[in-house]
Nucleic acid binder design. Structure first.
Lengths: 199, 199
DNA sequence: TAGACTAGAGAACGACCGTTCTCAATGCAA
DNA sequence: TTGCATTGAGAACGGTCGTTCTCTAGTCTA
């Protein structure tokens, strides 16, 4: 028999693809059992309920996604390159054959209104991404407000690539990001509209 | 008894709030019956299945959403103001107390992987929005590529406002939009990165 | 070898889903 | 008034869901 950890790994790895491809509510525990090869009894020993499995899936996905992004960005040296690398990585992600958007945006859309925990996980994931982007932007000597805008471009590209089924939004976002960085370099931080934006 | 049209109106109006707030799969036909006040028999005369009701809901929402946006934008005169007005309208939308993101992004996340029709409706809605934005942008004498970027900002703001629960992303997007418009005015269309972006 | 424990496969359970059916109440034509 | 079609309210149906239970088949200990 597999140990607790390995079995949990196996269940989560099998679950991942199912939840991402079909959504959460459309995947029954029976499909999880079949995909993981673990009997119900074991499954419910590892995760006391489907909700617990879902939350673990999201937790794990958050960690893996941000790690993959950081790994890719880490392969670039200058601060400017590192900011732009985010969008190159997005294009790579969008080009995966079974890309279907951001798991957190999707689960928020599906369950954000009925599960406070799922909504909280989405919020946490997006805040972490935003924080990472802010670090990259400030490391390039630019104001944090730029990170807000780049985050919007990234989120927009994620959604648009998913719905349209094409990876091009990554390039459009990258192009806009370059323009925004250039605009700041020319005008200084006052180039941003600070009359209403609070951060 | 109500006529066919009025009953359909009533059913859809009642359904709207339910689907938008809780998602589609989490709303049972029993909840639709209760909210609409229509008995099952009548409901299934008006819509042969839940799926038909869902698709009608999306169709209707698309029309109303785009009309509301066009109405707001139409209240502004100069082409530049009209482009910026889109983001003002977004802020207004985000500030509604029960705002929970874009119904199409949400349904795509929930059902895009299991219902081709829902995915198609989302694609159609986003294409229509993109087309509208392109018309506003080209009317302002700027290249259509800018519309791609503004669309990403808008989509990103829609998602971020939903998940964070705050309307500020509208201002951040507006600020970025102004910068992008300004950058184009300074550099001409060549300011855009056309080496990889195809449109 | 005997016996206590455990794992695995899947049946079973209660709840709920979308959908259909029943049937008493109603409106209306003659 | 009688007969007939249509309505509304909700029970019923088959199916599926998340979860638990049963029962067989091992496996380890003494």
């Amino acid at each position: 028999m597999l140990g607790h950890e390995e079995a949990q790994e196996q269940a989560l790895r099998a679950t991942e693809g199912l939840f991402y491809a079909r959504g959460i509510q459309a995947v029954g525990m029976d499909a999880v059992r079949t995909a993981s090869g673990l009997p119900f009894k074991r499954l419910y020993q590892l995760f006391p309920s489907k909700e617990a499995l879902v939350l673990e899936f999201l937790h794990r996905r958050d960690a893996q996604w941000r790690q993959a992004l950081a790994d890719y960005v880490g392969g670039h040296t200058t601060p400017d390159e590192r900011v732009i690398a985010v969008f190159d990585w997005l294009h790579q992600w969008f080009s995966e054959p079974d890309y279907r958007g951001c798991a957190f945006i999707n689960s928020f859309g599906e369950m954000g209104g009925i599960s406070a925990e799922v909504a909280e996980q989405a919020r946490h994931h997006k805040e972490a991404f935003h924080g990472y982007l802010t670090a990259l932007v400030t490391a390039s000597g630019r104001p944090a407000e730029l990170a807000d805008q780049l985050a919007l471009l990234a989120e927009g590209a994620i959604v648009t690539a998913a719905i349209s089924g094409a990876p091009e939004p990554a390039w459009q976002a990258r192009s806009a990001a370059r323009l925004l960085m250039g605009a700041l370099d020319r005008n200084g931080p006052k180039g941003l509209d600070r009359t209403r934006a609070s951060n």
